[in-house]
């Protein structure tokens, strides 16, 4: 028995040398190409009790939110799918309609401080408060902070020290 245990230990020790080679670098694959994951910034907002999430199918969300104040729609030249903008009091939702993928939420724009990000960031807040709620941005310019999650980005625009734009954008 001792002999077998020795074999197993030796075999495992030898194999360890291999596992460095076997370490998978593709762990970001899923989030990089596809939708959002749990690691990046949250890419949804709650409005009137309805969760509006980037990349999700739009039909049920729009139905739950009720009649928008305004709906504007523009087709594309090849007749392959329209871009529709649903304007609500505190929120604008852009939906890409496509024959292949159905109607998908492509962008969310917050219009006032009634709606906040899940982290509590709202228009009118100070940039430093936004930063402390969201952490260090993935990218920062002199006008905006960007927080990424897969192909989606939360863009916090500011003027001086005040947040004046909050947008969830598909890259």
């Amino acid at each position: 028995m001792k002999k077998y245990i020795r074999y197993i230990c030796l075999a495992l020790a030898l194999m360890c040398a291999f596992f460095a080679v076997a370490c998978n670098d593709d762990t970001e694959g899923e989030s990089g190409v596809g939708g959002a994951d749990d690691k990046g910034v949250k890419v949804y907002v709650k409005y009137n009790g309805v969760t509006v999430k980037m990349g999700e199918k739009a039909d049920d969300v729009i139905k739950a939110l009720g009649e928008p104040q305004k709906k504007t729609e523009i087709g594309d030249c090849g007749g392959l799918g329209a871009l529709v903008k649903y304007s609500y009091a505190s929120l604008e939702i852009y939906v890409v309609e496509s024959k292949d993928n159905g109607n998908v939420i492509d962008q969310i724009t917050l219009r006032d401080d009634i709606v906040t990000t899940p982290e509590g960031v709202a228009i009118g807040m100070s940039v430093s408060d936004a930063k402390s709620a969201l952490g260090e941005p993935d990218n920062a310019t002199d006008k905006a902070l960007e927080y990424k999650n897969g192909k989606y980005v939360l863009k916090i625009g500011f003027d001086g020290d005040t947040v004046n734009e909050i947008n969830y954008i598909t890259q």
Partner: peptide, 14 residues
């Protein structure tokens, strides 16, 4: 046994 442990070991771990 050496051969089996090594190879099935690699398979098992991976």
């Amino acid at each position: 046994l050496w051969g089996l442990f090594l190879n099935f070991g690699v398979l098992a771990v991976l």
